[in-house]
Deep mutational scan, measured.
Amino acid sequence: GETKIIYHLDGQETPYLVKLPLPAERVTLADFKGVLQRPSYKFFFKSMDDDFGVVKEEISDDNAKLPCFNGRVVSWLVSA
């Protein structure tokens, strides 16, 4: 499998796309960081919350699996 991750960088209009050679349910924050090489950023991901619906959730645990929608991951990188 392959996972497409779209990421928005510090408010830039056009998002970036990276592809990881892993199925979406196995991709972790560490996998994503390894491709990006951007150490001083906070990582937020499109996520579903039972109370609020669609939210941007910050993930900082490198072992955390990334939230996935239709085989895609959507993220926002914010300068720390």
Rank of each mutant, 00 (worst) to 15 (best):
V35E: 07
G53W: 07
D50F: 04
S47Y: 11
R38L: 11
E25D: 11
H8L: 06
P39K: 14
G71C: 00
D61N: 08
V27Y: 04
N63D: 10
K19V: 15
E2L: 08
K56S: 06
L17D: 03
N63F: 04
W76N: 04
Q12L: 09
K46M: 11
L36E: 02
D62A: 01
D31E: 10
V18T: 08
D51I: 10
W76D: 00
E57N: 09
N70D: 13
K56C: 14
T28R: 08
D49Q: 12
T28M: 05
S79F: 06
K33L: 00
T28I: 05
E57T: 15
V18R: 03
E2S: 11
V74W: 09
T3D: 07
V73G: 03
L9R: 03
V55E: 11
V18I: 12
F52Y: 12
K19E: 12
T14K: 15
G71D: 07
V74I: 13
F43L: 03
S75Y: 03
L29K: 00
M48Y: 14
Q12C: 14
S40H: 13
M48S: 15
D51K: 14
F45A: 06
D49E: 12
L77E: 00
L22S: 01
D31G: 02
G1I: 08
P15D: 07
T3S: 04
P15G: 07
F44N: 04
L17V: 15
Y16A: 05
L29V: 03
Y7E: 05
L20S: 04
D62F: 06
E25K: 07
S47M: 15
F44H: 01
A24C: 11
D49G: 12
P15L: 04
E58I: 08
F43M: 09
V54Y: 11
P39V: 11
V73Y: 00
Q37P: 13
F69D: 08
V54R: 05
G34V: 08
L36F: 13
L9N: 01
K46R: 11
D62I: 02
L36D: 08
T14V: 11
V54P: 13
P39A: 10
V55N: 11
I5V: 09
F69S: 10
E25L: 01
F52N: 15
V54N: 12
D31A: 11
F32C: 06
E2I: 11
D50N: 11
M48F: 11
F45K: 00
D51G: 12
F52V: 13
L66P: 05
P39M: 13
L66C: 00
M48Q: 13
W76C: 02
R26D: 12
M48V: 14
D50Q: 12
V74Q: 02
S60W: 11
S79M: 05
N63I: 02
G71F: 02
L20C: 04
P15H: 08
L17T: 15
L22Q: 07
V54H: 12
K42C: 04
L36M: 07
L22Y: 06
D10F: 03
F43C: 08
A30T: 02
S75K: 00
D10L: 01
I5D: 00
Y7S: 01
E25G: 11
P21M: 07
L36P: 09
K33Y: 07
C68R: 01
Y7H: 02
G53I: 06
D31R: 03
D31S: 05
F32L: 08
K46P: 07
G34H: 08
I59R: 02
S75D: 03
E2D: 06
S40V: 14
S47G: 08
S75R: 05
D10N: 06
S47A: 12
Y16M: 13
A80L: 09
T3L: 02
E57H: 11
T14G: 09
G71Q: 02
K56E: 07
S40Q: 13
Q37R: 11
